[in-house]
Design a binder for these strands. Structure first.
Length: 591
RNA sequence: GGACUGGUAGUUCAAUGGUUAGAGCAUCGCCCUGUCACGGCGAAAGUUGCGGGUUCGAGUCCCGUCCGGUCCGCCA
């Protein structure tokens, strides 16, 4: 006799009279004295059971002992509820069952935490009892939603003849810039595997092997500090293709998003817009601009250069810039201005100050700095910003990086504060034409902006020796509502160029050989032109589920200290295990 | 590594430095035949994260420490 013939959430009026057996959990018990209602829950939903002592005293007796989260099995006949007692809020609210039999499969002790979404619970506590927490409607919904999106991606790629291929988890450190998680080798004492930060080199090798279209739902590991949108292990939809150019990758990726949105019942407009990296930085102060609202950064550098306001003109003469935001500030209090100023001058924003000009009625101006400007300059500023009555322009003057960072953040802050962001919008943008390198502002050394296997734009090849900072990369990021969802590039497939890039990164020839010898050799053996992209699945699901933390879309996530409250990993290990691995623990002295 | 913030009953929260630290939910008991976040009456439930200090008196103030969260640094 099987446990169940049907599932709770799927039953409706059309099943009236149907004999069913069901199994699941007691979601809630409502004991009215003479009659007991129970909502039985399984993975499809909930169904009301009724016990009446006059109809079935045995069942009623068992129902009296049932408590929340008991695991039970029942048999009975689906009946339409008496007129007037239907519950329109419940999917199965038109029907109910008077069980003919009930069996307790397993009892449950009193729950350590509430499982109702309307009751807040400390997240640490939820994670400690994650197996219970996942019974919540909201968590069930999120995890199932995640599956649906993953499947939409798989379906699309498989239909396009992509091959799902697994790559090693025990591998060698690939240089993505993050710290590696290390695994000691027992067979070769003193040596370590690294967990992959991404399958980058393997997928390139698969292209060289001739598979031409690869994807993987790949777990990646990076030993860095966590954020609400960053976990130490996360999942990437990793994709690589041969004999393609940027357009192929972009249209393929757009196809994936089109399919995801179709599956979740939304529309998305293709193709996505594209924006140069420089444009994104200049207009939005970020490489991942939120295009759900306008408010662009306005450049006043040229006006300030010759103005009588020395604080600004001095900065411009030292290669700094002056930019601003034009903001509707009607009815703002003095405190709101000060709060903004305080915000911008925090360490995070890094600006030295915030100046403003406010345009009041009758062409009046309120501003701590207006007196330094001529009539002509003031009018130029107003025209440039297209400022209207009730607007203020907020200025930041400094080095380019600081101005962009401060105003980029301020823009997002104001977007929230002034409610300018339409949360129902889906704004995708490709950020293209990235620089291949950036100069480390402390050491002056070159760093790659993407990763070292990104191909330079062939048009800029001649600049590699002379002005490497000006070399553009064949790289692209996909940005959704101001969040980077993924990125990729066309790879370098010529050995000489790859070697050159590695040398420019100040890596010794010997180290190049040690770490990338196998790649360089592979490139020299008929490597096809290839490229790909990696999409952050966790982040994508988080965004589409309108959640603000990855922990809400990962079944068993880690907390900020990279530990798992449920299993209490990481933990100490037996001394025998350490000995076998020839490891000794030497903790730093607490000082 | 740093900034901010939180830690009080099983749980979510409350409590000007001043009686015996309170309330909702959950639990337990009694009552209740159409509830659906059922309702009513009652009970039990506390090392105020931990360790120091100030004070006549500390959940409250100070110092240290542990843990969670958000962010900066860090992170293709």
């Amino acid at each position: 006799m099987s446990f169940r013939s049907h599932f709770c959430g799927t039953l409706s009026q059309s099943d009236d009279g149907l004999k069913v057996s069901l199994a699941g959990w007691v979601d809630v018990r409502r004991d009215l004295g003479g009659v007991i209602f129970i909502e039985l829950r399984d993975h499809t939903g909930k169904l009301q059971l009724v016990a009446d002592p006059q109809i079935n005293p045995q069942v009623y007796k068992v129902f009296e002992t049932l408590k929340a989260e008991y695991c039970i099995k029942i048999q009975g006949i689906i009946k339409n509820r008496p007129a007037g007692t239907e519950n329109p809020d419940l999917r199965t609210g038109a029907v109910e069952i008077y069980p003919e039999s009930v069996e307790i499969l397993n009892k449950s002790k009193t729950l350590p935490l509430p499982l109702k979404d309307f009751e807040d619970t400390d997240e640490l506590f939820r994670l400690k009892y994650r197996f219970l927490d996942l019974r919540r409607d909201s968590m069930q919904k999120n995890i199932r939603f995640r599956h649906k999106i993953t499947q939409a991606i798989r379906d699309y790629l498989v239909a396009k003849d992509f091959l799902e291929i697994e790559t090693p988890i025990l591998t060698k450190s690939t240089p993505e810039g993050a710290r590696d998680y290390l695994v000691p080798s027992r067979m070769q004492k003193g040596k370590f595997f690294a967990l992959p930060q991404s399958p980058q080199l393997f997928k390139q090798l698969l292209m060289i092997s001739g598979f031409e279209k690869y994807f993987q739902v790949a777990r990646c590991f990076r030993d860095e500090d966590l954020r609400a949108d960053r976990q130490p292990e996360f999942t990437q939809i990793d994709i690589e293709m041969s004999f393609i150019n940027i357009e192929d990758i972009i249209s393929n990726t757009e196809g994936i998003f089109e399919n995801i949105f179709k599956v979740i019942g939304k529309n998305v407009k293709l193709p996505f817009q594209r924006m140069d990296y420089d444009t994104a930085m200049n207009l939005y102060g970020k490489d991942a601009p939120d295009l759900r609202f306008d408010m662009k950064l306005i450049d006043f550098t040229d006006i300030m250069e010759t103005s009588g306001f020395e604080s600004f003109s001095k900065i411009v003469s030292k290669n700094g810039i002056v930019k601003g935001l034009c903001v509707p500030t009607k009815d703002w209090s003095r405190k709101e201005y000060d709060d903004l100023k305080n915000l911008v001058t925090t360490k995070e924003y890094g600006a030295k100050g915030l100046a403003w000009i406010t345009y009041k009625e009758n062409n009046e101006i309120a501003s701590p700095i207006a007196k330094f400007f001529s009539e002509e300059e003031l009018s130029k500023i107003k025209t440039r910003a297209n400022a209207k009555e009730g607007d203020s322009i907020f200025f930041v003057a400094d080095k380019k990086e600081i101005v962009h960072n401060a105003l980029g953040r301020l823009r997002l802050h104001l977007g929230e504060k002034l409610n300018l962001i339409d949360k129902n919008k889906d704004e995708f943008v490709w950020i293209v034409n990235w620089p291949l390198f950036e100069k480390d502002h402390i050491s002056g050394k070159l760093n790659v902006m993407h990763h070292p296997f990104t191909s330079p734009d062939m048009k800029d090849l001649h600049l590699l020796d002379t002005e490497p900072v000006k070399v553009r990369a064949l790289a692209y990021d996909i940005v959704y509502n101001g969040v980077e969802l993924g990125g990729g590039s066309i790879r370098t497939y010529r050995e000489d160029i790859q070697k050159k890039v590695l040398q420019l990164l100040n890596i010794e020839d010997e180290e190049i050989e040690n770490r990338f010898g196998f790649l360089l050799q592979a490139l020299s053996l008929g490597a096809p032109p290839h490229g790909g992209i990696a999409l952050g699945l966790d982040r994508l699901v988080m965004m589409l589920a309108k959640e603000t933390s990855l922990r809400q879309v990962i079944a068993f996530p880690k907390v900020q200290s990279s530990s798992c409250p449920l299993t209490e990993a990481p933990s100490e290990v037996d001394s025998e295990q350490l000995e076998e691995l020839a490891l000794k623990i030497s903790l730093p002295n607490p000082s």
